[in-house]
């Protein structure tokens, strides 16, 4: 995973509550067996006027002129400003894959759905919670100033506006550390392999019925 410590970038608005992962990346694109290439289909239903097909080239598709990500002023945005309960619904990790592939490194919202929040950290996308009032202020700034950027510092847990306003945010220590160092989760967990093995042996003794075989002959 790409490490993340400091980021400065252009902010784009996604001004609606309860943006679900179906909206972030519609199901037809989940048929891919790859982790990359989802960027052109991010927000597909909102972004294009026609219906997107998996595997099809998006460059010639008609764009929805009313969708902010299509506005010239938001091209190259790397920070997405969003409303409450962002990322609700399906657990598809394709959602953060699509956001990252498009180029977003930070999502700012007053709240996130649990699974999506967790999935972001695995993919070098920082989901950042500010208060509803702070988010309101930022929306106003994004609309008022073309080219509005933010600076995000994970180490000090701060967001800075060009005008010099500073908002601090919370993030749990474990996720922060992993994100800063870009660590491989599995490698880290496997450092505890002996502890896991010991636990497993005890647990098996205590609950042997959880360790039965599932391998019975198929009945057709």
């Amino acid at each position: 995973m790409t490490p993340f410590s400091h980021h400065e970038g252009l902010v784009a608005p996604m001004d609606r509550a309860n943006v679900d992962t179906d909206l972030i990346i519609p199901k037809q694109f989940l048929k891919s067996i790859k982790r990359t290439g989802f960027g052109p289909n991010l927000f597909d239903d909102l972004r294009y006027l026609d219906e997107g097909q998996p595997g099809a080239d998006c460059s010639g598709r008609p764009l929805n002129p009313d969708f902010p990500l299509n506005f010239p002023r938001y091209q190259g945005a790397t920070i997405l400003l969003a409303r409450e309960n962002f990322g609700c619904g399906s657990s598809r990790e394709h959602a953060p894959w699509a956001l990252a592939d498009y180029g977003f490194r930070v999502i700012i919202a007053p709240s996130f759905a649990d699974i999506f929040y967790n999935n972001c950290f695995k993919n070098g996308v920082l989901p950042l919670v500010l208060t509803a009032e702070q988010v309101d202020t930022l929306f106003a700034s994004v609309y008022a100033h073309e080219g509005f950027t933010l600076e995000v510092d994970l180490r000090s847990q701060r967001v800075m506006t060009p005008a010099g306003d500073v908002f601090s945010f919370e993030v749990d220590a474990f996720r922060k550390q992993r994100m800063l160092e870009g660590l491989d989760d599995i490698g880290m967990t496997l450092k505890s392999a002996d502890t896991i093995r010991r636990f497993e042996a005890q647990w098996r003794q205590r609950s042997p019925w959880l360790f039965g075989s599932l391998d019975t002959a198929a009945e057709r």
Binding site: R35, S91, R92, E93, P96, I115, N118, N119, K122, N123, D172, F174, D185, I186, T189, L190, S192, A193, I196, E200
Partner: peptide, 21 residues
Amino acid sequence: AHGIGTSEVEHVLATQCLVQQ
């Protein structure tokens, strides 16, 4: 019982564990 993302699917396959809060 709960849903997980694909990175965690890989994590469970490899370690039989999940990092949770």
